[in-house]
């Protein structure tokens, strides 16, 4: 990542020094020790106070754990369902059933790939209308058969393509919002990476919102915001601070309920730690919601939405 470059340079230098033979160069040992100390110090400072823009970069890190990784690490007996029954199957959205510590749930998630081939098939995690319609189908199934919904957010946004407009991208998202607002089962959302605008929101609100420490959720991408305001995408660092898109911001705004800590430098540095944190937070959320009368959930969810927004003269 861009902001890690000074650290990368030192680590490269250290690696090359370590290749040399210390017995022939007596100064080398001291130099290596010095470098190691400097790297340790940089580790402390670099990640101590991450800016929102740095967190956005961590959220987009290619090695960051993805929906598939959470499915594998947290759940058993995963069954995927496919297709929107209208046009096709969008691989950028996972929909299916899975078991979390004995609890049967319906799972949704944006699905980035772990390599280029997978990413092309999955459109880099940016859904087409078919993906949203598949998600909507799963919401209705979950509602009918009483399964809580767990949804993992990780998308740059709904895909802004020509065919997507042809096939009603906006309508597909709106239908998801309608379905998600009215399901009579608990809905727990986990922001694991990117939460890009309407494409994230379509499967991204419910009864609880859990955010990973470095995940973001935003009305618009910082780059697009910078392009609109300044005609300069390079001012994304500035706009990402203004947009208040970090996990902590969302807690402060009353939108997120829990933040799962990440290892220093991001979730990819120690995925197991993050899986444990998500498992704990998810289980707690599902447990607290399991006691609630299912029929009352849509009203409670509506009250939660109803409070969002700041107005004067009310």
């Amino acid at each position: 990542m861009e902001f890690e470059r000074p650290l990368d340079e030192l680590e490269d230098k250290l690696a090359s020094l370590k290749h040399l033979d210390v017995s022939e160069q007596p100064d080398l040992a001291a130099e290596i020790a010095g470098l190691e100390a400097e790297i340790a110090r940089l580790h402390e400072t670099l990640y101590a106070e991450l800016t929102p823009w740095e967190r956005v970069q961590i959220a987009r890190h290619p090695e960051r754990p993805k929906t598939d990784d959470y499915l594998q690490a947290l759940f058993t007996d995963v069954v995927e369902v496919h297709g929107d029954r209208l046009f096709g199957d969008d691989e950028s959205v996972f929909a299916g059933f899975a078991t979390l510590q004995g609890r049967k749930v319906a799972v949704l998630g944006h699905r980035k790939g772990k390599n280029t081939t997978e990413n092309v098939r999955r459109n880099f995690g940016s859904p087409h209308p078919e993906g949203f319609r598949k998600a909507e189908r799963l919401m209705h199934l979950a509602d009918r058969f009483g399964m809580p919904i767990v949804s993992f957010l990780d998308t740059a946004g709904a895909y802004p393509g020509l065919d997507d407009e042809d096939r009603g991208q906006a309508l597909a998202i709106a239908d998801c919002l309608a379905a998600l607002s009215s399901v009579r089962v608990p809905v727990v959302v986990v922001g694991i990476g990117e939460g890009g605008s309407g494409g994230a929101l379509a499967i991204g609100f419910g009864d609880r919102l859990i955010m990973l420490e470095n995940a973001y959720y935003s009305v618009i991408s910082p780059e697009m915001c910078a392009t609109i305001l300044h005609k300069d995408a390079r001012r994304a660092s500035e706009t990402s601070a203004c947009l208040q898109l970090t996990a902590d911001d969302l807690v402060r705004l009353g939108l997120a309920d829990a933040v799962v800590a990440e290892p220093r430098g991001g979730a990819h540095r120690d995925p197991e730690m993050v899986f444990d944190g998500v498992r704990t937070a998810l289980s707690a959320a599902l447990e607290s919601l399991s006691a609630v009368d299912r029929a009352t959930l849509p009203d409670t969810r509506y009250e939660r939405l109803r409070r969002i927004g700041e107005v004067a003269g009310g």
């Binding site: 709106a174 919002l177 309608a178 998600l180 607002s181 009215s182 605008s197 309407g198 929101l201 609100f205 959720y217 935003s218 009305v219 618009i220 915001c225 609109i228 203004c242 947009l243 208040q244 898109l245 911001d249 969302l250 705004l253 939108l255 969810r301 509506y302 939405l305 109803r306 969002i308 927004g309 700041e310």
Partner: peptide, 24 residues
């Protein structure tokens, strides 16, 4: 959405959609 209100603005999509669903 009005980007100057950040996530509060994005969430109005869910809020209004939920209200529409109740009317329907």
């Amino acid at each position: 959405a009005r980007m100057q209100e950040g996530m509060l603005s994005l969430m109005q999509m869910a809020k209004t959609a939920a209200a529409a669903t109740r009317l329907a």
